[in-house]
Amino acid sequence: MYSTKYHRASSVAEATSLVSAAEDGKFLAGGQTLISTMKQRLAAPSDVVDLRHVDDLQGISVSGETVRIGAATTHAQIAESEDVRNVCAAFADLASLIGDPHVRHMGTIGGSVANNDPAADYPAALVALEATVHTNNRDIAAGDFFVGLFETALEEDEIIVAVSFAAPKKAAYQKFPNPASRYALVGVFVADGSAGARVGVTGAGSDGVFRASDMETALDGEFAAGSLDGVEVDTGLMMSDLHGAPDYRANLVKVLAKRAVVAAV
């Protein structure tokens, strides 16, 4: 790891001012990606600003049908949260499938969402739930937030403070892990929400997370696995690597979507 300077922020304002004052500052949430990247010398921030002790980023709250999850909430806290489970059990299930228990104890939803790894789990859920990403400056619809591979709508020094979403009628997440990394080789989050069926797909798209609109249309007819039988997944949109060629990924998208529809509660 290259040399870096560590700061511990106690407020969002302090965090953003520390980062903007730094030559090349980075927010450090759970660090499960950033520290790994720094260890491999693939990132060399001059300063890191630790967000784990910022109170405003903590906590899960429910208001009516909507849950708001502070950015510094860990995957483990989300997986164990009764509040989250009551609003959307599938979301808690998804959190329980991220990384491993030790990673879940440190990794946070804000950090993961801001990183927008194309194989991360949350993005599939956030686009399918039409969630809102709250930053220190504005609210961003999930559909607008995830821009491309590791790219988001976040501006310099903008920081995620929370994400929120309303309870769907039904939802489920199905993940087929990359056998080595255990990230999603393909992950499909299906939600039957107030505006209709939504299908978020992670791990598969060559451009990152996407919504499978053909599938959504088919499910709007009837929210049943059989509705997806005739839907073709475009292999041209699929990522390709050692572990999944486009045709295999496309197959998994369909298989997992059908399973998610069956599993949706």
């Binding site: 560590y6 511990r8 660090g31 520290i35 790994s36 260890k39 030790h102 990673v103 104890h105 440190m106």
Partner: peptide, 20 residues
């Protein structure tokens, strides 16, 4: 793996300063 405030974490993926 060690325990940080009672929870298992990977000590290779955090700075000592984070654990202060």
């Amino acid at each position: 793996v060690v325990h940080l405030d009672g929870k298992a974490v990977k000590s290779c993926t955090m700075l000592a300063a984070q654990a202060a």
